[in-house]
Design a protein around this nucleic acid. Structure first.
Lengths: 155, 155
DNA sequence: CTCTGTGCAAACACTTTGCAGCTAA
DNA sequence: TTAGCTGCAAAGTGTTTGCACAGAG
């Protein structure tokens, strides 16, 4: 925990440098706000919401607006510098099928499709998870583009 | 479509009867609204939101309120007559860790924990999914109660 | 200098809560 | 009868959009 970086790959400045490169490659300007959002995100281990990050970043750039944080996060996700935790951000969706199955979600049209792949019906809960958490649900979850959305150009 | 039921297990009235039994067992009253919501849900294959179902049920019970539909769905999920699609209903949560990993989400406190179980890092996309969808993300996803939330009584 | 990004504010969409009258049991 | 359910209304929370000014390239 006190050990700064075990990933073996890059320290924080390296990550920032990589991020700057990524921005330029994507045609995005490197602004203090973007750097701050990126830095705060990679330092956060709690999968923060836009609001949680906003409050943290305010300590660094007091007059940053929530909208900038929110929009920047969305931008980071688009250029691949951040991930949106699977499923989050959608309205609640219900399923009346109680039989064990999996879901595929189209990130474009938001449709959710049932997947019945019995190999995935009994994924065992690894010991290290089962002892720390009480797992009530284990699913294999797919995201991507459905056939209809693949036909129209993205964006 | 005109074919009533191919599931082989139970026809619609059976499912409704089962649902009534489940309600009584849970100490819930069997109301026309609950029956209508349940019926509409199990007939829907598109993982509807409360609003989507509300509009459908309005055709059957024109003066039903959105709130009843919404609350009923939440109730169904509680008694195990419906499922909330994994992750949905939460605010967007971001992740700055790009390395392949999995998530455990506590349904009570909404905290999300990283899981690093390398066995799950390379779940192959089944042929029948890959040909129909363009999968950009495959994850094993866990839900349940974290240790802290297990200590306090649920509800 | 130019064009993108930022900050502010308003509009929206979804969810939750409280309460009075209604109804299943 | 009576506890629980429904419908209505309001408030709360998170997200999106439009626009004028500021700042990166």
């Amino acid at each position: 925990m006190s050990n700064p970086d075990k990933s073996g790959s890059a320290n924080r400045s390296d990550k920032t440098a990589d991020f700057e490169t990524l921005c330029r490659k994507a045609g995005l300007k490197v602004t203090p706000q973007r750097l701050a959002v990126h830095k705060a995100l990679i330092e956060s281990k709690d999968h923060p919401s836009a609001d949680m990050l906003y409050r943290r970043i305010k300590n660094v750039i007091p007059n940053i607006s929530f909208d900038t944080v929110n929009r920047t996060l969305l931008t980071l996700a688009e250029i691949g510098a951040a991930l949106v935790v699977e499923g989050t951000g959608d309205v609640k969706r219900f399923d009346g099928t109680l039989r064990k199955h999996q879901h595929f979600r189209c990130v474009k049209c938001k449709r959710i499709f049932d997947i019945d792949h019995t190999d995935f019906d009994d994924i065992p809960v690894p010991r290290e998870i089962g002892t720390k958490f009480t797992v009530t649900r284990t699913t294999v979850y797919f995201e991507g583009f459905c056939d209809a959305c693949m036909m129209v150009p993205h964006k």
